[in-house]
Each structure stands twice: as structure tokens, then as C-alpha cells.
Design a binder for these strands. Structure first.
Lengths: 138, 138
DNA sequence: AGGAAACAGGATAAAATTTGTCCGATATGA
DNA sequence: TCATATCGGACAAATTTTATCCTGTTTCCT
């Protein structure tokens, strides 16, 4: 549940990509700007690619570019693409049964915290975070 | 930030201790009721003891008992006693500087999620979770 | 006084997760 | 064809989580 470096980097990378909207940047360019290992960032961008947030262009003069409008990419989208479901307590994961049979009175609290956090993350788009006026083109 | 087994066990242990209010239970009794390793639970209870939530009685017929009224023990108290500060993103920890010099637009979002989660955890006491009418005795 | 029951706390260790690294395969533009 | 990129899997280091064990100390009971 804690935001890992991967997710942190993912957000920063997407913020960078949203600056040069439409531009395609190779991983090397991004990793230099962000001053972090290219190979690690490459893995992260692959996850974002599978999630349909960025688009990869292979071959020479290839790289990554945004696939969606920055106004339609939320922090939650990025969190989920990189870390998966947002979970506060393993014991409260849907479909998994609490080890104790008796009803756990604490479950609802974890669930509420989850809902609130997810709602907050969904409220903020890359566009709003970069202070960009969200254009309406998809 | 994610709730670990330690914290989960701590909550359950304190709920058990609040059932027999005032009673002193040895770790072995608690670990049997909870069906988990005594040595692991012992470490957790030591943390709770240092935090002033439970009280240890040494020697034969010793054990642990609540030190505070269940209505004055919140989930947050337990979380903090076991896991320390509640942190959503390491980069947003107070006093630690974000690796990037530029102001990070995402910080405030993590901070807000932290505040909301802590507030939610503070709202729920052991007394309210066990459905007990919170007595007024300290 | 002596033995048994119980906590205190440090050292150790297994397992899982996080944080990377590396390399061969594949795609593509010039 | 060559240089530049991504793709994806295997590998590895560091950290955190989840414990276990052992020695020491305290206290009750006989």
C-alpha cells in the first residue's frame, strides 16, 4: 500500500512526458532528466505501457509518449498500473477470508481508509498536477 | 504504511485483553486463544508495553493487562506503537527533503491521504470496536 | 531458600518485497 | 545492414516482515 519508488518514478516520468505533449522520448532521455537508472525506469515504463497509459514506439528514434490526455490520467491510474490494488491490510482483501472465523470489527475501518485514499488519488490528474490547462483532445 | 501482521495481532490481543478487563493474561494464554506463535506475540506486547498501552506484570502468575481504558486506546495508538509513524510516501516524510529540488506537486496529496487515514484510525477505540459500553473508570 | 512461572531484550534467521541490473531477442528508421 | 530502441525474462542486492531462540531477571509459592 505504501507508495514505492517505482510508483513515485512513474508519476514523475509521466509528468515529464506531459510537458512535451505528443513528443516521443527514449528511456535514456527520461532517466537522464530524472537522474535515475535507465534499466529500472525501463521496467516501470513497460508497466505503464501495458496499462495503456503510455505508448511505446520501438526501433530507432523510438521511445515512449503519452497515450491518454494528461487530464485523464489520475494518480490512482499510475498507482494501480505499477503496484496493483491499493490495500491497507492484507486481512481485509476482498475474496480472501480473515484467518479468524468470527466477524472482524476492524475490517470496515481499513476498507473505509482504502476508499478514501483511492478517491483522493482519483481526484488528481497529471494535468492538474502539472498546472496545465487540460485540453479536450483525447 | 500498510498494516502488518504485527499491528493486526496487536489489535486482536488488545481486544482480547479488553474482554477480561483488569485481568492479567500471560502471553501463552493470549497466543493460544489467537492461535499464533507465542514468541512473536511476546515481542509485540513488549512494544505495547513501552507505549504505555498495556502493563506487564513479571514473575509467576504475571502477564499483561490493559493500562488504559479501552475507550482511550485508538487504532492509531496501536498502529503507532507497533509500526511507528503512518507514512504514505517516503519522499513526503517531514524533515526529509525530496530528492528533486523543485517543489513536488504530489506531496500535498500524500499528506492529505495520511491525515485522513490517521483521523479515521483515531476515531475508533478498542471500546467501540468491541461493542463495549465505554466505562468511565481510568 | 529454592523452584517454577513469566516477562525483557538481544542475536539470529527465513521469507517476502523492494530496488535494481543484465542480456538476448525483436523491431524500425536511415 | 547498422545503429538505436523497446521487450521480457533471469538474476541479484538490500530492506522489511515475520518470526525463533536463548540468557537473564523478577516474582510467586511452598
Amino acid at each position: 500500500m505504501k507508495v514505492t519508488r517505482e510508483t513515485d518514478y512513474a508519476i514523475r516520468a509521466v509528468l515529464l512526458l506531459s510537458e512535451d505533449r505528443g513528443k516521443t522520448l527514449p528511456v535514456s532521455a527520461l532517466s537522464e532528466k530524472m537522474d535515475l537508472p535507465r534499466s529500472f525506469l525501463a521496467k516501470i515504463l513497460q508497466k505503464l505501457s501495458r496499462a495503456g497509459i503510455v505508448e511505446s514506439i520501438r526501433g530507432a528514434s523510438g521511445g515512449y509518449r503519452l497515450k491518454r490526455n494528461p487530464s485523464r490520467i489520475s494518480l490512482y491510474d499510475l498507482y494501480k498500473a505499477v503496484q496493483g490494488e491499493f490495500v491497507v491490510n492484507e486481512c481485509a482483501v476482498e475474496g480472501r477470508v480473515c484467518s479468524r472465523k468470527e466477524r472482524c470489527a476492524v475490517h470496515p475501518v481499513w476498507k473505509k481508509i482504502e476508499r478514501e485514499a483511492v478517491r483522493e488519488m482519483k481526484k488528481h490528474s497529471i494535468a492538474s498536477l502539472s498546472g496545465e490547462k487540460s485540453s479536450q483532445r483525447s
